[in-house]
């Protein structure tokens, strides 16, 4: 009765309505991702979770699982493309891990470790992006934003506040705040909001909590993101 699909030759059960990502996660198969989070509506934009479904590239986080699908996930070619996409995310912003408070807890960095990314490969863009330190408790460093929209979705779907949105087109894409001044301080965001904790990178940080856990003792300093993603509770995964 159970429906199945195969990922890299392994039979995986799924239920109707599940995406490939959901079926894989339930079966403890890791598919790299950054914009996906199991608690929120999938977005399908980072393209790290691209898998080959019956020979065609599909985003695992949005593509529905179906009986008999042959999915390729953990292959050399696919991971090579994922590495390049990760490198794109690095060069597009200003990501300097050694000086970032998020280092060791950063999913962008962790995915890069996982994919064995050893350099930026592409020329750096060095965009000029401002910081928003106006809020008493929360800081936005736009230099590290990867446009995953997790803060947008968390604010809408869980906090019921709609504090964030993406604006602009193409390479000019940027995160904006829903206040007349455009500043975070005028928004309804508080430090306890889900949106303040969901950022996979160091773009949204809680003030006065920096370095409470020393560098070297953080999650991805010791664990591969594939294990963390599948085994730790999502609440922990967020930090």
């Amino acid at each position: 009765m159970n429906k199945t699909l195969s990922i890299d030759g392994q039979e995986i059960p799924f239920e109707d309505g599940q995406t490939i990502m959901q079926a894989a996660t339930a079966a403890k198969v890791y598919i790299p991702h950054l914009c996906h989070h199991p608690e929120f509506t999938p977005h399908g934009s980072c393209k790290l979770c691209t898998v080959k479904v019956n020979g065609r590239n599909c985003s695992a986080c949005t593509f529905p699982a179906a009986e008999g699908q042959e999915v390729l996930n953990n292959t050399t070619d696919i991971n090579e493309d994922r590495k390049k996409i990760t490198q794109m995310l690095f060069v597009e912003g200003n990501h300097f891990c050694p000086s970032c408070e998020k280092t060791g807890n950063c999913q962008l960095q962790a995915v890069a470790y996982h994919l064995n990314m050893l350099d930026n490969h592409f020329p750096l863009f060095y965009p000029q992006r401002a910081m928003d330190a106006s809020h008493p408790e929360v800081l936005i460093d736009h230099n590290r934003c990867i446009f995953c929209t997790l803060c947008v979705r968390a604010s809408q779907e869980q906090d019921g506040k709609n504090v964030f949105a993406l604006s602009g087109r193409g390479i000019n894409k940027h995160l904006i705040v829903n206040t007349p001044s455009g500043k975070l301080k005028d928004s309804a965001l508080v430090a306890d909001d889900r949106a303040a904790h969901i950022c996979p990178t160091g773009a949204i940080l809680i003030k006065r909590t920096g370095y409470t856990i020393p560098i070297g003792q953080r999650i991805y300093d010791h664990h591969d993101i594939s294990d963390v993603s599948l085994t730790t509770a999502e609440a922990q995964h967020d930090h």
């Binding site: 399908g44 934009s45 980072c46 393209k47 790290l48 996409i85 794109m88 995310l89 060069v91 597009e92 592409f122 020329p123 863009f125 990867i146 446009f147 602009g168 087109r169 193409g170 390479i171 000019n172 894409k173």
Partner: peptide, 13 residues
């Protein structure tokens, strides 16, 4: 449009 990484960053590259 800038939605996905490969096109947003890739077309600029």
């Amino acid at each position: 449009c800038g939605f996905c990484t490969p096109c947003r960053v890739g077309t600029s590259l």
